[in-house]
């Protein structure tokens, strides 16, 4: 086990103001990046009592959706290069999106290019069905993920 925190002193950003969507009955209600962002912005960081939004791990711009093809691509930026929590964050994102979207959406989760030392292996791990399923079988990991998703500590 690692001793102490991996990133002991992260930079915390202000939360962005939530803009209530206008109640227009005729507007196009297709899935857009903001939808997805609203679901994932409050996921807690595995290490700190801050949300991914506050740590600037995610932003609305880093999410792209293609509703026709049913594809979602999320690119996140770990706070530091050697963050071993990157995979946990990715796992959280995957679990959360699985809960919030119908199963036909194909979700790709990647770390932002150049933001992680083991970029390739992390990406590979996060998008490998078998490995994700195996990770979620692990009770310790599962608990960590659930804590991040449902914690009200923020």
């Amino acid at each position: 086990m690692t001793l102490g925190l991996i990133n002991a002193n992260p930079v915390v950003h202000a939360k962005k103001e939530r803009i209530a969507r206008t109640e227009d009955p005729h507007c196009d209600d297709a899935v857009d990046p903001l939808d997805i962002y609203d679901f994932v912005r409050d996921i807690r960081d595995p290490e700190h009592p801050y949300s991914l939004e506050q740590l600037s791990v995610l932003s609305e711009e880093s999410i792209t959706v293609d509703e026709k093809l049913g594809r979602i691509l999320i690119t996140f930026t770990p706070t530091i290069q050697h963050c071993s929590m990157a995979t946990v964050i990715g796992l959280c994102l995957r679990v959360k999106l699985k809960e919030c979207f119908p199963p036909y959406f194909k979700v790709d989760i990647k770390v932002a290019p150049g933001s992680h030392a083991n970029e390739e292996s992390v990406n590979k791990q996060l998008n490998d069905k078998e490995r994700v399923a195996a990770a979620l079988e692990n009770p310790n990991l599962r608990q960590l993920v659930d804590e991040c998703l449902y914690s009200s500590e923020l």
Partner: peptide, 24 residues
């Protein structure tokens, strides 16, 4: 959208009544 968001909330509530994990 409004229906989808309610559905997510509802799904989570129902999933958590028997999930193995801790409910926060």
């Amino acid at each position: 959208r409004a229906v989808r968001q309610e559905a997510v909330r509802c799904r989570q509530a129902w999933a958590s009544i028997a999930s193995r994990s801790l409910n926060f």
